[in-house]
């Protein structure tokens, strides 16, 4: 029912074939058959605009949306298993008890706008590997274990190896990202997530996620991950090292922030130079630590 409405101004990708597999096996067969010619369509929130700009011209789209078996969340063995088709908005309320769920919720509210969060997927975001994507930074912070499958088998890729450069991952063309496994952080872990964007919902010019514990009054097991500042999500190992064992508080947070800003190899673009992005890393790292001890 209703009026057919066709707006010729907004949807003009180059022509492509659309495949809707009915099972995971069929999807993997399609990927094996079409290789580099194929692109997996999950939420489509990055791929479709890129196709409309004709920046992406896949000959074949393999739509995995019908594969509802890829939309799941499970907690096993101190791990949160996130099926590749779980939508961003799912994480707006904590999906699990404790800091991991809390951190995911902190980050989720920064993912695009509401329509994007309803449609876009966790796995799609990781596989797209935008260096300013929140989930890529969380995956890097928590050393996610990324589980993949192709028609010839499966493998586990650590986040550190997975993200290679802008829009480039360790995934082979015939390989589908099935699941991300995140550790369930112990309940005493403090987490913080800060980002800076020009407007609400924009890609961040920089973002910082932190997680650490306080044992006997000292910062322990600190993790600092940065996004939006380089070609891929990064950890700040020198800053992590310098704050390990320090008294939590403004001086140590500032020192860690200063180190993170210095050690990062930042990239500039029209929204901010490399030097400006280091300024942001400095401010956001300190704020993420402050946020972590204030609210968790």
């Amino acid at each position: 029912m209703g009026v057919q409405y066709y707006n010729p101004a907004c949807m003009k990708p180059a022509s492509f074939d659309y495949l809707a597999p009915r099972s995971l096996e069929e999807a993997l067969d399609y990927l094996a058959e079409h290789g580099y010619e194929a692109k997996v369509l999950a939420g489509g929130q990055s791929l479709v605009p890129a196709m409309n700009f004709r920046l992406a011209r896949p000959a074949v789209l393999v739509d995995i949306n019908p594969l509802s078996e890829l939309d799941y969340l499970e907690e096993t063995d101190h791990r949160l298993r996130i099926g590749t088709l779980v939508r961003h908005s799912t994480f707006e309320k904590p999906v699990c008890q404790g800091p991991t769920g809390r951190l995911l919720a902190m980050a989720a509210r920064h993912v695009g706008h509401w329509p994007i969060r309803v449609r876009g997927t966790f796995g799609g975001s990781l596989a797209h590997a935008d260096p300013a994507a929140e989930w890529c930074v969380i995956a890097r912070l928590l050393d996610a274990d990324l589980v993949t499958r192709s028609s010839s088998g499966g493998r586990h890729i650590p986040a550190e190896m997975f993200f290679q450069t802008v829009f480039t991952t360790a995934l082979e063309p015939d390989e589908l990202l099935l699941e991300a496994r995140l550790p369930l952080l112990s309940s005493d872990t403090k987490v913080g997530f800060q980002q800076f964007s020009r407007r609400a919902g924009d890609f961040a010019l920089a973002m910082v996620a932190v997680a650490f514990q306080i044992e006997e009054g000292k910062v322990m097991n600190p993790r600092i991950a940065l996004g939006g500042v380089s070609d891929r999500p990064l950890r700040a190992p020198e800053a992590e090292q310098m704050i390990e064992g320090a008294d939590p508080g403004d001086p140590s947070f500032r020192a860690a922030a200063e180190t993170a800003a210095r050690e990062i190899e930042a990239i500039g673009d029209i929204h901010g130079s490399a030097s400006y992005r280091r300024d942001l890393v400095r401010a956001l790292t300190r704020r993420a630590f402050e946020q972590a001890i204030t609210i968790s």
Partner: peptide, 26 residues
Amino acid sequence: YEEIRYDEEGNILTTSLMDFLPPTMA
């Protein structure tokens, strides 16, 4: 917020609303 940018060769750098930034209600 809003700024149209060109590079020195006269290429326009702000050809989408990711780069040319009208403010939103927020």
